[in-house]
Write a protein that binds this DNA or RNA. Sequence first.
DNA 1: GTGCTCAGGTTGATGTATCAACCAGGCCAC
DNA 2: GTGGCCTGGTTGATACATCAACCTGAGCAC
Lengths: 157, 157
Amino acid sequence: MGWEQDLGEADRMWRTYIEMAKHLGSHLQQHLQRECDLSAADFEVLVRLTESERREMPVAEVAAATQWEKSRLSHQLTRMAQRGLVERVDTDDRRYPDVRLTDKGYAAIDKAVPEHTELVHALFIDVLGPERLAGFAQACADVLRALDEHRERDCSL
Amino acid sequence: MGWEQDLGEADRMWRTYIEMAKHLGSHLQQHLQRECDLSAADFEVLVRLTESERREMPVAEVAAATQWEKSRLSHQLTRMAQRGLVERVDTDDRRYPDVRLTDKGYAAIDKAVPEHTELVHALFIDVLGPERLAGFAQACADVLRALDEHRERDCSL
DNA sequence: GTGCTCAGGTTGATGTATCAACCAGGCCAC
DNA sequence: GTGGCCTGGTTGATACATCAACCTGAGCAC
């Protein structure tokens, strides 16, 4: 096929990606922590909760949206409840309680999202510009698909 | 409000990237853990140590290479020493001990690196192909540069 | 020599991630 | 109804990340 290239070159590019992902992630995380007193985990849960207009949804729905393990989510909700960002609400089927955004939680995410979005634009979206961004996202989508296929193969063994 | 519902095209692409980064990272990490009984942190430290031919280097040098906080590294080395992957070695200046790869640590990383590399190729490098990989890496480099500039501005405030 | 300084290393506390074990309560068979 | 089952949630233990406080010992002033 002839499109293999120097291994060292590809390896260097892989490292560039790893570096970028690490730095970008920690930069965004530090910003959230410093400016809004939210961890990345807090942010993710809060964002999911705002996607319900009732500011409340079953735990399982949050788990599905975040794709987190149930125990991770449970621990996280416990900590967030202690800090007053969310609260657990019993439903008619008492096996499956809801989680509700408190006013404090709403205020926090309402402040955090615009700042976070602005930073994402400044550091990523605007840096690439629309064309390269589209190519980048397509590449990400392809890698995601490869991952899914790989996982499928693993499971079927 | 409106930021919840109104995700633009660019924001969806950002989310695609986030998804990809999350899944790819955790997939690689799980592979290392399952197949080689190494965490990502273990792997990183061991790789750095193999870059010294004596399989031994000052703690500060590992810290510089990994760009980790000194305390993070210290904790990590303690855990790795307990598991017999590395050992601390006193030098002539007893303030600055060395870290040395044990035989067990060497065996672990010697098994892990080829498998890890293979996976990186299968899931990332070969998926993109050389051209798109180069574009991708260039984009990453640009984002890294933007990050550096941003950090500079932050510090000079 | 004696004592100060201080960079680098360790330790402790807290928050987070993951796995395994456990619990709880609605569902179904009977 | 009663008892077992099954699914989803919680809890506990351990590993990792981060911050702050502390320690240590070589280098230096004197």
